[in-house]
Design a protein around this nucleic acid. Structure first.
Lengths: 204, 204
DNA sequence: CAGCTTTTGTATCGAGTGGTAGATAAGTCA
DNA sequence: TGACTTATCTACCACTCGATACAAAAGCTG
């Protein structure tokens, strides 16, 4: 089997650069010129590798999801429901103000509203945001079964609340709020969380 | 003084239509073709009246602010800090899912990230969002002075928390969440609010 | 080497972008 | 009525958009 000319750029590195452009300018605001310049490649190479601008975004979102996966593993490993909430919010305060990335969250910055021809982009981003909420909800369902979430705690409502606060923190960060401001929001938000009790909180 | 040919369209009606387009598609996603079609006028009329696309957005934002002003008057008229928070969140759950408007909040949907040439749009929107937070903060400062906010309640932190939740609810609504979902988020969020005490809560 | 496959760069496509020039229409005032 | 002012319409500007045709280049196989 003949191999053909080998690719001259690293797909993952190129995706990291594309991710940053989408993150900073949104899907509609990110032009092919910006993307190809940041990725260090020409349009035909981009289209050969990713198919289309939308295909490139999805590949970048997949890579973003990989990064967040280990993140969420740490969050979900919290001992109690409240501990999970605390890990979730405080780690978001850090990541959304990480100077290594554009401020905020790619899944929010990417585009809540798009122009004609890219109406499905907001849906794509929303479905990826929803996944985090689902992970939290399932964790809280388990927490309730295990007794480390209060009896009157609603797993679905709490997961949606945390996910909503996370989105709001993304908006806040994108307006230039500093890390301390986000930490404060996280701290206040935790006040809405029912205190854990049961096995995980019992002394000894 | 000579008057000249009178304007053939109603500025406010045209702004309402433009507002809806910006709301649904964002600043970058809203094209002149969409805007002029919705407003029922031709480009030269638009430019004569509003100067530029950005000028049109600012005029639409001013109109949006007028609408919200009476809204906020009701919110800030709450008897206690907690009552203000409750009014704020529940009215947002309603307004962000009002079928008469696109879902979410114009100040969020309008554009968190924009393309080259409209980098100042996100700042413009952020500064308008910040105004709501300021109004809440000032109300809570007064509440603390009047004794209807707990001693350990931080007016700035609480205002920022509410503003953040409101932005998050905007994101949630724009992903298609229904009114009941937003009401639930509002209900959970209120749990983060310190219970009011003092004169306003005293019996009698 | 020749032959094949795939990638790369140049140069460009048609469509759509925000914005405008210039003529015409519709009013008011003398 | 006719001069004056302003708004509106048609047509179009230069430019950028996402995407691609085509040929040269770079690798492997025989």
């Amino acid at each position: 089997m003949v191999m053909g000319r080998p690719r001259s750029f690293c797909t993952d590195k190129a995706l990291d650069e594309a991710m940053e452009v989408f993150w900073r300018h949104g899907y509609d605001g990110a032009t092919l010129a910006m993307l190809t310049k940041a990725m260090g490649i020409k349009p035909p190479s981009l289209y050969a590798a990713f198919g289309s601008k939308e295909g490139l975004l999805k590949a970048a979102l997949d890579r973003y999801a990989e990064r967040r996966a280990e993140h969420m593993r740490y969050v979900l490993a919290g001992a109690t429901a409240r501990d999970v909430a605390e890990r979730f919010l405080s780690s978001i305060a850090e990541s959304h103000t990480d100077p290594a990335n554009p401020p905020g969250c790619l899944l929010v910055q990417g585009g809540l509203a798009c122009g004609a021809g890219s109406e499905n982009i907001p849906f794509e981003l929303a479905s990826r945001r929803a996944q985090t909420e689902t992970e939290l909800r399932e964790r809280f369902v388990r927490a309730k079964r295990d007794g480390d979430l209060a009896e009157d705690g609603d797993p679905a409502a709490l997961a949606r609340f945390l996910s909503t606060v996370a989105s709001g923190m993304g908006v806040l960060a994108s307006s230039g709020a500093d890390r301390e401001a986000l930490r404060e929001v996280a701290r206040v938000s935790l006040g809405a969380f029912p205190p854990s009790h049961g096995v995980a909180d019992e002394p000894g």
